[in-house]
Write a protein that binds this DNA or RNA. Structure first.
Lengths: 306, 306
DNA sequence: GAGCCAGCATGCGAAAACGCGTGCAAATGC
DNA sequence: GCATTTGCACGCGTTTTCGCATGCTGGCTC
């Protein structure tokens, strides 16, 4: 027999908000990820734990949050509602952590930097080396990816980006302007130089689908031979002599087996920016990195401009 | 005052997002409560657990959140920052739970009602009995307190309040107007009736500190004999013959050993309202309670008005 | 159709979190 | 001035939670 009526004369806090905030977060991640395994990876947990927490949350809330289908967990309307509010909780949590991080005056601990793959590989490795030597107690994490990591969600502490737009709540500092131009293997370059009227085979980004604008009118014949969605692959194709590719000067110049071809004169290309969230901009570690990066980039500016 | 020596493993993984939201909530409760024991009570935990969670949070964030003083945990600036953001997370959590509750169409489970102590005791007990009989599967929790519980924070699902203002995000329905008047023990009443010019000794609320306005001019002599901060105590004092007290009609009429004295003619007094949060207003259980309460209060309206 | 993989449930041993009891210090009450 | 209360730290035994291994299902490839 369970009790039907409870009298409370004192204001003892009894309201059954006994359910766990971590369970709400787990539900949110599962909605985002779509499967137990992906959500578990996001949370650094075993997927069994995710399943258990979701079950607990459903039990505590008295509502089904997911439909268990053979191809994964499908959120119900209630599950989406939970996820929506948990997102806002997550925003608060992220903001909090950023603010705490922004007050951190120590030059110890973790610092996560993200930058485009090829910028890291050809430009930043030396700086990274120097930074690690200068601040040996900082645990530097590099995320070399072309994805724009979400600095709001603290996927990285700072970013070096090839974009004019530092973003919404972010702050930015321009590191250098840069230009693009056309590059090809020496053999292709020789052929084109020998005969400007020969057909120029372009290797272009999948996004563009077309020959770059502003090609030199001295070379009238162009066609797109192939499209790629990855710059590393484009460069490899160009190196292998498959055609001409447009790429930033720093990249073409740093790539063995590629030479400039005059087909496309140097074109302004999105600038290189240092970007960080307002909240962490002034923190010791971010500042230390920035103050080493800015002069370094200035010193090698020649690699980016004609 | 002596501070406890704090050991922080300085290489705590500052960046593991894996830190617990529940720990943030624990910090928030400790800031609110001021002591481990009070926070633990709020959370339904042992205070040792609160201490451990706070220590974990400090370790994970790499910042001291509290100073351990002999008279309790004093939040640091960082602790206050954590609490501030956790409050917003808590708001989101509360909102979520309210919305889920608002969609709940079942007439089973828990329902928490709050009302002023004396209104429960003298007016609502019969209704509560009937409600429990009509909905035996609803677990009714009564919180009889004069504190205004926070319906936003789900300290109660619905409230019966003596106030014109249903509040900010709340909805309200007026149940009945009511009036107050002066009551005293029969002996005092006889004395005053026999000699209208005798000194009338008032027992008043600490908040007012003064004899009620609008006393009948036929009784010219008044003084405040004592002040109380509790209506139960005022009534007891009046019953014991210590003086005349102003109180709502329903209360004086329902109290043994008290009779009306004509010193203070019936005065308008704040109305009785049914109040609930928008989000839960239309839920099955709240609706069921309201639809039993409203006609009940109409049927006994005579007890509230002259 | 056999094999393979992604995705999930279940059971078990290990690890973490928890509650309780004890002990201590400072403030409070008689 | 001594007993009591409040508030906390620490150690121990227990409960809960977690990760891992196993087994199952349905869709996919060859």
């Amino acid at each position: 027999m369970r009790k039907r009526v409870q009298m409370h004369s004192s204001h003892a806090n009894m309201h059954s908000m006994s359910h766990s905030w971590d369970d709400l977060r787990t539900v949110m991640c599962l909605v985002r990820a779509g499967s137990l395994a992906a959500a578990a990876k996001m949370l650094g947990l075993n997927y069994t734990t995710v399943a258990r927490r979701v079950a607990r949350a459903e039990d505590a809330l008295g509502v089904a949050l997911f439909e268990r289908l053979t191809d994964g967990y499908q959120p119900t309307e209630a599950g989406l509602l939970v996820a929506e509010h948990a997102e806002r909780m997550s925003d608060q949590s992220d903001t909090l952590l950023r603010k705490l991080q922004g007050q951190d005056a120590s030059l110890r601990g973790s610092l996560t930097v993200t930058a485009p793959q090829l910028l890291i590989a050809h430009v930043l490795t030396r700086l990274i080396d120097e930074f690690c030597a200068a601040y040996p107690e900082i645990d530097l994490h590099i995320r070399a990816t072309n994805d724009l990591l979400d600095l709001n969600r603290r996927e990285a502490d700072l970013a070096i980006r090839i974009s004019r737009d530092p973003g919404d709540t972010l702050m930015g500092r321009r590191l250098t302007p840069q230009y693009s131009a056309s590059f090809a293997s020496p053999k292709i370059a020789d052929q084109i130089n020998a005969n400007p009227h020969q057909m120029v085979d372009w290797i272009v980004y999948a996004d563009y689908q077309t020959v770059p604008a502003n090609v030199d009118p001295a070379y009238p014949n162009h066609r797109v031979r192939m499209t790629f969605d990855d710059m590393v692959a484009i460069r490899a194709a160009a190196q292998a002599g498959l055609g001409v590719a447009r790429m930033p000067l720093f990249l073409g110049r740093a790539s063995d087996g590629l030479v400039r071809v005059p087909v496309l004169p140097p074109q302004p290309y999105p600038e290189v920016w240092f970007v960080a969230h307002r909240d962490v901009w002034a923190s010791a570690k971010v500042t230390a990195f920035r103050e080493m990066l800015v002069p370094y980039m200035r010193s090698i500016r020649a690699r980016f401009v004609p």
